[in-house]
Design a protein around this nucleic acid. Structure first.
Lengths: 258, 258
DNA sequence: CGCATACTTGAAATAGTTCAAAAGACGTGG
DNA sequence: CCACGTCTTTTGAACTATTTCAAGTATGCG
């Protein structure tokens, strides 16, 4: 396991995985039946990835994109000098590095914050689909644009909001995204990440984040446990973080997943 | 001029504009001769835009993308409550809102920080090109990905660097980008932006930015004037900002424009 | 049971903000 | 061409959010 992979191939479940991804695409794009079945026929190789392990590294050439099937994955931007920071978090259904299909060079790392499952989809298969179906090309391109939109929102948070608002915004965003894939839990969301990693993503020290979390706990707004965030006052959280879901650009809404 | 436009059509120069854009695309993508001439045949409507005026507004439906021909344009992310901040700066040759070709909703505003010239290219023409030429679809998609890469880098700057490093990084980035379009001046770069707007983009108060600029002036690193930045010590600036051009993802380099 | 990692808390230091105000640039109309 | 108002830049001083340093308490794993 020198790459941190356990590249067990499980072809019988790949339909399910791709259905997950298809559902994700259809959150934002309209596809015809031919295009749908083309997506569902993509080849996929399932891997388990270790926690705290970069399964995509800077500089390393890649010939596949990673669909998150289960778990939580952090995307790190990294400078040549090694300095790095989390710039995005990916949940099941996200194709974490769709960018790599068209990017010359991988300029980020992917890292599981909890033991996770990913599906590796060959770039060439994705490219072939975009050549055959312009609608799929648009859907991929659009998903990259939404990813950029999330990033822009995040830059806005970092530059203008204080610590509490940033935490509140991120919790609200994750809540919205988990809701979109039908994974809201009774009173909260899965969020298996350490305070250290969370602080990194938020541009805070873990010490300061800890104090903010303490405040949220004391004021019964939200409680972070190792694996999840229990949200007791979602409206308050959204207000604190000045959260507005427009930037996630979902389609009018095909009814909330029951 | 109720829209702040002066929609003078100058068809005779549109070849030049599109050549500018083609050159930009070819910085990162390889195109065949058929594709090249398709780009050069795009329809374009030239407009002058007033300084300090949003020529693309949130919510406003758009049916065209804006190619910056001359000047400097800021992209603002904006919340529904009106709070906004600069998340990107665009120089000539940039298609500032290529995203809008595939985005359902425009979630940012474009605003000229100096009197500028833009060319409006109809979405439908751009879409038609991507349907006909997969290579062009890849090139557009790739440019959006690079835009996201710049944004990720910027998020990293905001979350981990102090004021001086952020200023130094932005100056270094702009220098690199102006160099790529062959617009480096003798001892500096064009940068027609007020300290207030620059501070906004950097996530600083204009007061603090002013003190950083003073320091750079005193230490003979760089001097900001209303219209430009004179750079006296580019290596120092790059080191201070820990600038590493990899994220701009240009191709191996077709020789620096003389 | 012991070691490593994650979390929590306190106190001191500081980068950056806020408030306040003056001095310089620039265009407009008298 | 000068006076005026507006906008930008510059500077000072007080304040505060966040970091840094330091230490202690849980928690989980071999």
């Amino acid at each position: 396991m020198k790459h941190g992979f356990d590249p067990t191939i499980m072809p019988d479940t790949s339909q399910d995985l791709l259905a997950l991804y298809l559902k994700r695409l259809e959150l934002r794009s309209t596809l015809g039946s031919e295009e749908r079945s083309a997506i569902l026929s993509l080849p996929a190789e399932i891997c388990r990835v270790d926690v705290a392990h970069d399964f995509v590294r800077i500089g390393q050439p890649v010939d596949h994109a990673c669909l998150i099937v289960e778990g939580l994955v952090a995307r790190f931007a990294q400078l040549r000098n090694g300095q790095r920071g989390i710039v995005a978090l990916h949940i099941p259904g996200d194709m974490a590095d769709l960018h790599s299909v068209v990017a010359k060079e991988v300029s980020w790392a992917l890292h599981a914050t909890t033991p996770s499952t990913i599906a590796r989809i060959p770039h060439e298969a994705l490219r072939e689909l975009t050549r055959q179906y312009p609608a799929i090309a648009f859907a991929f391109w659009r998903d990259c644009v939404v990813d950029a939109s999330v990033l822009a929102q995040w830059a806005l948070n970092l530059s203008r909001k204080d610590a509490a608002a940033r935490v509140a915004h991120l919790f609200s965003e994750m809540r919205h995204r988990y809701a979109a894939i039908g994974a809201l839990e009774a009173n909260g969301i899965p969020f298996p990440i350490t305070q250290t990693n969370l602080a990194d993503a938020l541009g805070l020290t873990s010490i300061h984040l800890n104090r903010v979390l303490k405040r949220f706990r004391e004021e019964a707004i939200a409680v972070k446990t190792p694996d999840k965030v229990e949200i007791y006052n979602a409206p308050r959280l959204a207000a604190l973080g000045e959260f507005d879901d427009a930037y996630l650009q979902c389609l009018p809404d095909p009814q909330p997943a029951s």
